[in-house]
Design a protein around this nucleic acid. Sequence first.
DNA 1: CCTACCGATCGGTAGG
DNA 2: CCTACCGATCGGTAGG
Lengths: 205, 205
Amino acid sequence: MSPRRSAAAAAATRAAVLDEAVELASREGLEGVSIGDLAAQMGMSKAGVVGPFGSKEALQLAALARASEIFRREVWERAAGREPGLPRLRAICEAWISYLERDVFPGGCFLTQTGAEFDGRPGPVRDALLETSKLWQAVLRREAQTARRRDELPADSDPAQVAFELEAVAQGVNTARQLRGDPRAGARGRAAMRRVLGLPKGTRL
Amino acid sequence: MSPRRSAAAAAATRAAVLDEAVELASREGLEGVSIGDLAAQMGMSKAGVVGPFGSKEALQLAALARASEIFRREVWERAAGREPGLPRLRAICEAWISYLERDVFPGGCFLTQTGAEFDGRPGPVRDALLETSKLWQAVLRREAQTARRRDELPADSDPAQVAFELEAVAQGVNTARQLRGDPRAGARGRAAMRRVLGLPKGTRL
DNA sequence: CCTACCGATCGGTAGG
DNA sequence: CCTACCGATCGGTAGG
């Protein structure tokens, strides 16, 4: 009862194109990746690359969805098993820094890259990025809220402020690493996130 | 003894092209601004736009130099008159947030935008951005060092870590503002920078 | 998923 | 600083 061979093959091609697009876009940006580049890189024709999606914009949206899926797997899912509140928040932070250190996307965080690229370009890609960004802020805020309710964070701490600061640190790590090539970027990010979460200096994330 | 009229006019044209390029690039990225777009926007011919620079890459480098000059004027020079150490660091932070809130570049911080765009694109533009980034980190680090020496920061604080965290916060403000349109972005950035500098909660930057 | 092709636009230049 | 033009590449499509 497996799908027809041609359908399975089409799905595999689609996935391969997306993986390549996500990788290239993390280095060059989503707009900077041309269909011709992509085709050349994969030894395919341009029609073969764009066909499964219909247009470059549709390909961009699919690449963004794929990248969000990878981010979710590498950061959220590694922490989702932990107790809600501070334990989970710490696990998210550790997974987030690790994701940046391991260069899960070779050109650095796909969402940071394309967020900067599209924040001034209205359209469906920007809308999707905004949605992803708001969703992730909401996840962080919710865990900070839980942590505060459980007295794992000070009673006067602001969950939205915690979410804002954690994202800021992650962006700082990405820049320090990808632009300046700073080998201490990850360590600096961990130290900064510990401070945001009010953890004592010696503590591990 | 003024320069020949044609030379002055040429300089004025050059400056006008750069201002337009910097503005467009803060929205669309440096690579995204085509010579044709720029010419159309200014009611000039493509030859007139690219002529003063010789090539698009030379124009990009000149635009980056112009943007660095504006950043320096809006952030560094507003604080340079203050006492070295914590007073100057606080003034830098306030000017930095203000610069982001006033949308000095209409698409957000030019250096954040192009830094993300070029961190994965080797070449002269990336090299220049790296230089600018390292220079600004050195400025922040030096002020933090002075502040520590004067006991305005804890003896065990790390000046490079302070510089890292301040840049992270500025990037966080830029994203919160330009992508999410968060009206509290500036306030959140000030609060975060106050924490980085160890200032009590009520204090102004 | 390929070949072959479309009109539009790219960066850049010759000549004035 | 303009017109007019260059070859190359862009996103996209027809037909198989």
